[in-house]
Design a protein around this nucleic acid. Structure first.
Length: 575
RNA sequence: GUCCUUGUAGUUCAAUGGAUAGAACAGUCCCGUCCUAAGGGAUAGAUGCAGGUUCGAUUCCUGCCAAGGACACCA
């Protein structure tokens, strides 16, 4: 790649000047006018050599110019002593050719070649609503899965769901309590799953409220919880089986719209016994008994960690224990080189403790476990809580987003089927982009008006720009403009100066596990394309440069398609 | 109290230790015989506070302030 090549010639130049360089830094200048690549070596070594940075930069420049490769047009010294490289027309022309050659492979790298990476994300709980937090985890996890895939790994997608525990008992109590005749009919069918799941969500909310407000109901629900575990009550078993199926079915419908296909579904009910066995086997070693419970004193291994209970004094395995079971199961089943878990930051400290415990039992897993945490999705009114019922569910949000798109395309000359597809694809894009445009660390303040705004910095803006490019390609085909690299415009567009950077951006997104770098890049790229589009008549048979410009548009379209794929967003042909 | 996140234009977000801190929305003002105006152009506007390291700090270190989270039997 060109980057390595430039670093090499800088290294050679420095050697000729008798400077031993360690780690040459080559970056893109903030302003595109200042060149395509820039190095700070003159500033970094001037002090050590006792010279002025600019003077040293000039010397290095002369040395570089003795043997400049054809990809570089010129070298300049600027500012406090930066050495800037300007890539040549030939480089950009070849770059366009390369993109069209690589097609769907454009942007891939080999950082993870022949590795296997398991990514766990989404983690909704049966019997509870699919809320915005799940949407967030899904968008991020799916994007990371695809970025990892583009980095050469085999990706295994996993989902982990809490199908047992107090939340299920609360929901079942709610279902029994709210079941009038009409809802008894509900229990006879699992269709439509979405609506039924929504009703179960309401039952959960009512049950959870009652649990906190009424002592006798609390006792009843605890009783139900026990019966769920030992499967001793037929009526409860029936409701349980029905509710589990309905909610899982509803989740599957959402995954389909979101574009996720899981390879594995892990359930807490299955992980509990596995984890419990492991924990009990390690009492005395890793775990200790304390006040009747089985705990892990993580602070003994790392002062920043804390003690957590793994099995209660009543002998019930907690989430920590199930997580141990899950982690070990993942490694035993798939033996991934890297196991990534995506959750909200509130799980951060807890996960460190669990991973420390697992590491003590299986030291070889330690360096392979990665926890990616993201901020919380919150309303302006505060934290979202499905317990208090003030939720905007993930499903309702998706529906609203798609409805807005439907209104916008209503007047377009498209078939009803096309409009429906566009509503789905663009609605999902609006939502995913609003999640993936920010770095993972900070919270996302959810503003409905803004999330459905399709102007400017948004998913639909990216799709719209790609669609415009697609129209040009279609039109050029109709006009019979053939791709030949005969006449190349002498000027270099901002679009070209952005396109070749795509693989670097993908690699960086993987190394930092931050999808937003791709989102930011695509927005800049789209902006560059739209400027080009506004100022240039591209499809023009009498223009000798038309074939190259169409090729450039195709290269742009391909880059957008691949980039949007990495965000889990589809590129429509029309909208 | 201890630990983990996060503090950047009016708002929502960017910025692999670099050059004049970038966008978008909202504001003001332009662009419609032309490939989709869900577009383009112009204009105004910001690094929580105080130190330190560095040729250079939004970025790294220390302290403070503010918001959110985790700290024994919820998940």
């Amino acid at each position: 790649m060109i980057k390595e090549k430039i670093i090499q010639i800088i290294d050679d130049a420095l050697k000729n000047l008798g400077i031993k360089a360690e780690g040459i830094i080559l970056e893109h200048p903030a302003d595109i006018e200042m060149g395509d690549y820039s190095t700070n070596v003159a500033m970094a070594y001037a002090k050590q050599l006792g010279t002025n940075p600019r003077e040293l930069a000039e010397k290095i420049k002369i040395e570089l110019e003795k043997n400049l490769p054809k990809e570089i047009e010129k070298v300049e010294v600027a500012g406090a002593g930066f050495i800037n490289f300007y890539l040549s027309r030939e480089f950009f022309t070849n770059s366009t050719k390369e993109i069209l050659k690589q097609k769907e492979n454009w942007g891939k790298n080999e950082i993870l070649s022949s590795k296997k990476v398991m990514v766990e994300y989404t983690q909704p709980n049966p019997f509870k609503p699919f809320h915005i937090g799940h949407l967030m985890s899904n968008a991020i996890g799916e994007s990371i899965s695809r970025i990892v895939e583009f980095s050469g790994a085999k990706t295994v997608r996993a989902n982990y769901q809490g199908d047992v525990g107090p939340h299920v008992a609360k929901a079942i109590y709610g279902i029994m309590w709210l079941s009038d005749n009409a809802s008894n009919e509900k229990l006879q069918t699992t269709d439509p799953a979405g609506e039924l799941a929504e009703w179960i969500g309401e039952c959960y909310t009512k049950g959870a409220q009652a649990y906190e407000e009424n002592e006798s109901i609390k006792i009843q629900i605890d009783e139900i919880n026990k019966k769920i575990y030992d499967k001793s009550d037929n009526e409860i078993n029936k409701i349980y089986d029905w509710g589990r199926e309905v909610t899982l079915c509803a989740f599957e419908e959402i995954y389909q719209i979101l574009g996720t296909k899981f390879n594995y579904y892990f359930f807490e009910s299955e992980m509990a016994p596995i984890g419990e066995k492991i924990v009990r086997e390690n009492i005395g070693g890793v775990f200790t008994e304390s006040e009747g419970a089985i705990v892990f004193h993580a602070e003994n291994y790392d002062p920043k960690l804390h003690t957590r209970v793994f099995i209660t004094s009543l002998g019930i395995p907690l989430y920590e224990t199930k997580e141990v079971g899950l982690t070990v199961t993942k490694f035993e089943k798939e033996n991934p080189d890297i196991s990534i878990i995506t959750t909200a930051i509130e799980q951060g400290e807890y996960m460190k403790v669990v991973q420390k415990a697992v590491s003590l039992i299986h030291p070889d897993y330690e360096s392979r476990m990665k926890h990616v945490t993201h901020g919380m999705m919150r309303l302006t009114s505060g934290k979202m809580s499905s317990r208090k019922g003030n939720v905007v569910t993930g499903e309702s949000l998706l529906r609203d987003s798609m409805d807005v798109v439907r209104e916008k395309v209503a007047s377009r000359d498209l078939s009803a089927e096309e409009k429906d597809t566009i509503a789905k694809v663009v609605g999902v894009a609006a939502l995913k982009y609003s999640i993936l445009r920010s770095s993972l660390g900070s919270d996302i303040v959810y503003d409905f008006e803004k999330s459905i705004s399709f102007e400017g910095d948004s998913g639909p803006y990216l799709q719209y720009t790609a669609v415009r490019a697609n129209s040009i390609i279609k039109k050029s085909e109709a006009e019979g403009i053939h791709l030949v690299y005969k006449n190349i415009p002498t000027d270099i567009t901002i679009l070209e100066k952005n396109l070749y950077k795509f693989p670097e951006i993908v690699a960086r997104s993987y190394l930092l596990l931050e999808p937003h770098h791709i989102a930011t890049y695509l927005t800049e790229l789209s902006s560059a394309f739209n400027t080009f589009y506004a100022n240039t008549q591209i499809v023009n048979k009498s223009d000798p440069y038309a074939p190259y410009r169409v090729a450039l548009v195709e290269a742009f379209h391909q880059t957008m398609k691949n980039g949007l794929y990495l965000l889990g967003i589809k590129t429509p042909d029309k909208m």
